[in-house]
Design a binder for these strands. Structure first.
Lengths: 191, 191
DNA sequence: CAATTTCAGATGACGTTGTCACCTGAACGA
DNA sequence: TCGTTCAGGTGACAACGTCATCTGAAATTG
């Protein structure tokens, strides 16, 4: 009925889902291997059959999130209904949306793990490549990386500060949306 | 010789220093109340006489870091030898420097604590006010907050992504310095 | 000055957690 | 059919945050 390989794969999936659910509900501190195992229907030691340690599990969760973002940006890029500035705006807004809807996951996506520091960064590569392609449409290949880096880091900064409560309307008299609009405007004018 | 009040104050200071040292060396995970107490020359339960819990201690460490940043930016603002763009550049570079020299501390400064979410943000207020004053010199009072928010969030984004390893020269073909320069240039041209 | 209160600090204890060593049983290949 | 592999379960351990309780000295009060 269920081969050993299928069973293992489904358990792994259940572990990832459980970890993501706990992360979303209560942050990293709420993700305990015991609870992850319980929600996945296995025992506390079972996760070690699929992940080296707790951090590897969290890294995998973050990597999957990056893959989803990459797919979204890819879909945006290949859209034929949107203009280049619209694609750019949508891509940046997408990042902000992740931060707003899943702040804990967003933080994890930008947290350097002490285990394999390059794992999450590698997973983010696809998203960045797709994003760079959109920027290139707007400012040309030559300046794509320069402006791409500026836009990517700035959009992350906006999101990160909003997520951490450092960007409030009362204090700064502006919003994440307006800041993104300023960025797109500045770059579009330049290119 | 040493009054009780003096002793308590020096212990509190020693606890903060020990926590900061452990944070700098091994990140938040390396900060255990037991080790903090040991390095401060007290027992594991002593920190509870000065801080409600571990998170309060970390919040205090982050707040003190923000106060130092605030003092630095304030000194920059009142400098008579620097032009407005130079002040701005120096302020933004200062933030990047903190991230490079003390990445764990930098992360903590932008981490929302679950205890009192507003504590660290309040401590950052002074820095932001001083920073806004510098921006106002450049673009005028009217647009200061808009551009200030853009510059502050962008500089944080640059630093954050470099700290987390997401901003590499090989990938993006640029550096934090160059990105700051682009930001200053864009805003100076606009104002 | 003596009695009392206050409070920084020490210590024992408890529950929780990540992790490992070891065991079990079922799916697999020879 | 028989050994092998491997997902999963379980007991155990050290480390940790936290609390209740105790102690002694400084501060306060009469």
């Amino acid at each position: 009925m269920v081969s050993r390989e299928e069973s293992a794969a489904s358990t792994r999936r259940a572990l990832l889902d459980a970890a993501a659910a706990l992360l979303g509900a209560g942050g990293v501190e709420a993700v305990t291997l015991r609870e992850v195992g319980a929600r996945a229907g296995v025992s506390r030691g079972a996760p070690y059959r699929h992940f080296a340690d707790k951090e590897s599990l969290l890294t995998a969760v973050a990597s999957e999130a990056w893959e989803r973002v990459g797919a979204d940006v890819s879909a945006l890029r290949s859209s034929s209904e949107l203009s280049a500035p619209e694609k750019l705006r949508a891509a940046l807004s997408g990042l902000i949306a992740v931060g707003r809807e899943q702040p804990h996951l967003y933080r994890l996506m930008f947290t350097q793990p002490s285990g394999d520091p390059t794992a999450v960064v590698r997973a983010a590569g696809r998203s960045q490549d797709e994003f760079l392609a959109i920027v290139a449409e707007l400012v040309g290949e030559k300046d794509a990386r320069r402006y791409g880096a500026l836009l990517m880091t700035s959009a992350h900064g906006v999101t990160s500060m909003e997520v951490s409560g450092h960007l409030t309307t009362e204090k700064w008299g502006t919003s994440a949306e307006e800041l993104v609009e300023m960025l797109v405007g500045l770059v579009a004018a330049e290119g």
